[in-house]
Design a protein around this nucleic acid. Structure first.
Lengths: 205, 205
DNA sequence: GAATATAACCTAACACTGTTAGAATTAAGC
DNA sequence: GCTTAATTCTAACAGTGTTAGGTTATATTC
């Protein structure tokens, strides 16, 4: 077990970290709905109430996991290739990849359920906002201000929707997921063929 | 109460319908996580186990609601304007509108939780597949076969993502939601400005 | 080194959930 | 009116999140 990294300074050693680790394992193994205080404690080998010395409740554990997730997502987006040609595709691919690598966590980060709780909900809201700002600032350099917001919403909707469809298994996973993702992202740049969406005719601008 | 439409032929009259009605009200009022057998029964004014004569379990109620939702969504998409100019925008707008009008239901239809259950899960999967086929067949008339799948995935990802972002309150709702939705959908036709995504340079096709 | 203080942990319990078993009530058919 | 069957009920089981209060092991102090 990797939980024995430190030679048990306290009763357990580092219960807080152990709870988070097992919670995340449970999350990915059984899905967000299966996250249970008692099951997490069971897996750690501890009585359920012990967890309350480290977290105010189950929601707090969920939020802590989501915070981990946002930090990891931010890092992935930051280290994604930013060269001129593939900025959009690189970042988009990194985003969807993160969701595919952490399906349960991704659902947690954007799902509801514990969003209502006062303190924790706010923290999450801020993290989501910061992730969104990251997208916005990338676009601000390249677009006039009035087009930034729509473009960001467009992009975020696309990668968020694609991530969830794939994570939830709504579409059959092809052999080469990456190629499929890239194909979709390419459409974000070119737009749909005009045979689907005749260009002018309804442009009031 | 509108539940007195028929003069109480049985003990209740039409418990099954009453359960579904209150379940849907609860779903929209408190969200999918708050759906509870006992609370639904409480609202109908009946003991919880009574519901088991009409549904095998809570999952079955959830699935029945989702089926209602898919039927309503299909109808909206069918009656959306199909004239040449606005096929894409009209259908897309109808899709997002449905989600905004039925936020709890939409989350239920595409969320997880009860998807694991054997029998019901299959039923839902088929309904989702049929909704997807609807999009595909619309595109098949206008695109070469090899482009259909990617275009459909692109469109579905976009409207699905946009719907969830708005339903979950991830973006601040502007005064005119419809205008915002239309702006995003328009980008699906034109693609992002080339300043964001320089066209050639990585096109292997 | 022994006594104390404190942080970590556990047992017991409360209120809630989904669900099942079996009894009681009500309507339908003869 | 009696029988039968459908519908609803009460009681109970196993599970959940959470709280209260006691127990144990560590850390500190004399």
């Amino acid at each position: 077990m990797s939980s024995q990294s430190k030679p048990a300074r306290y009763h357990h050693g580092d219960l807080r970290a152990a709870l988070l680790r097992q919670a995340r394992a449970l999350l990915e193994a059984e899905g967000p709905a299966a996250l249970s205080m008692r099951e997490i404690a069971r897996r750690v080998g501890v009585a359920a109430p012990s967890a309350y010395h480290h977290f105010p409740g189950l929601d707090a554990i969920a939020v802590a996991l989501a915070e981990e997730g946002f930090a990891e997502l931010a890092q992935r987006l930051d280290t994604a290739p930013t060269n001129d040609k593939g900025q959009l595709a690189g970042t988009g691919l990194a985003y969807v990849r993160f969701a595919l690598d952490n399906p349960g966590l991704y659902r947690m980060m954007f799902g509801e359920g514990f969003t209502a709780s006062s303190q924790e909900g706010q923290s999450l809201k801020q993290l989501r906002q910061r992730a969104y700002e990251r997208v916005l600032s990338g676009l601000r350099k390249r677009l006039p201000e009035e087009e930034v917001e729509t473009a960001a919403l467009f992009l975020w909707s696309l990668v968020h929707g694609l991530s969830l469809l794939m994570v939830d298994g709504r579409i059959e996973r092809p052999d080469d997921s990456e190629a499929m993702i890239m194909s979709v992202l390419r459409l974000a740049g070119t737009g749909l063929p005009s045979s689907v969406n005749p260009p002018s005719a309804n442009d009031p601008h």
